[in-house]
Design a protein around this nucleic acid. Structure first.
Lengths: 199, 199
DNA sequence: TCGAGATCGTACCGATCGGTTCGACCTTGG
DNA sequence: CCAAGGTCGAACCGATCGGTACGATCTCGA
């Protein structure tokens, strides 16, 4: 029961509640795989309320993706921060967190990438691009602290590993992708942190 | 004009023609973004013909994805084979081919991954998984010929790089992703090919 | 020449979906 | 105590979509 029968007591609280409840259903079944009616039933809210808060189904979708991107990014950044000051430990923590995510039974790949593939709307693509930007910022920071010769290059390579591992885990190998990517990431980090490349 | 007005002259030719014509439209606009009617108009075929050949829209989709996977895999394998016998040259050729793909204006990411994200049908997921298997086979072969200590591990890491680069190119950085991934792949190949790791 | 069958174009069907409307209910602020 | 407004539930609407049916046309093999 997220909302009482009639009330003015929920200015933005109702929005957050709806977004939170709609997120797992949209993630599991796809943006177009669940109708507004079922969405309302799941959330426990009437159509009229949903449409007053979000205007349209796409409005709800954008709000859901926005919050999802924030949650996931904060989760990864928190895992890195909790690993201490060593960039290698931080990178290991990131991929361990990813591996834990891949192991969850509800894991279905990156919600933003899935959404961009499904919904051909500019706003969704923008949210996805921004999501990758956040990842890149986190990974480039690790590369910088590791003293990489070209931190921006290493950051992009780490981003490619993260996204590639997520794709492979979702569609082929859920158990090994995280470990393989982590090992590759640590190798690249080691090589990039040397002033004189070994070859 | 793929088919004359009435004819028995096209046992399997008609199927191939329809698949070939439907592929770019489904890729550009998404599986659910284009209806059967528009699909028929684009292909130049009536609904009845399409349904007799494929039974259902999903049948057509599966045929399209199957052929697409074959085409892309053959294209990459051809690029690798044309680069000679050196595994490093083959790997470079693969990523150069990917970069060329990313630069095409119609590039919208991997068709199989997009389809799996859109269409929650088991058959589509199976085609996607098999597509990744083909990539993995190609890359593991290169890793073996390079004398990698653990070719299966290196193959999976290269697959992660390929898929990650495709995702990043589609959603964030179309120009650099291929180069960054290629450089990372060559680094991993060098490290894995040494009997004694440098660290 | 003639029948079998593949195709076309169009109309049609049932279902679903996004979105709107409306009457009734309940809470809140004055 | 009462008006304002957020909420509900259900009915409703127009559009679209996947799939079918049908009569007409054309080609090919016997």
């Amino acid at each position: 029961m997220p909302v009482a029968k009639g009330s003015t007591i929920d200015p933005a609280c109702t929005r957050a509640t709806i977004v939170e409840a709609a997120m797992p259903l949209l993630y599991e079944r796809g943006l177009d795989g669940v109708g507004v009616a079922e969405l309302c039933a799941r959330v426990g809210v009437s159509k009229e309320t949903l449409y007053r808060h979000f205007g349209t189904k796409d409005g709800l979708i954008e709000a859901v993706l926005h919050k999802r991107s924030e949650q996931v990014t904060r989760w990864l950044a928190g895992a890195a921060a909790a690993a201490g000051d060593d960039p290698r430990d931080q990178l290991t923590a990131v991929f361990d967190a990813l591996r834990q995510w891949y192991d969850e039974p509800v894991f279905r790949g990156c919600a933003m990438l899935n959404a961009a593939a499904q919904h051909h709307v500019e706003a969704v693509r923008a949210i996805t691009a921004r999501h990758l930007d956040r990842y890149l910022e986190l990974l480039t920071g690790i590369a910088e602290r590791a003293g990489a010769a070209d931190p921006h290059l290493l950051g992009r390579q780490l981003l490619i590993l993260v996204e590639g591992a997520t794709v492979v885990a979702a569609h082929q190998d859920a158990v090994g992708a995280g470990d393989h990517a982590r090992q590759a990431a640590l190798t690249l980090l080691s090589i990039a942190s040397r002033t004189c490349p070994p070859a």
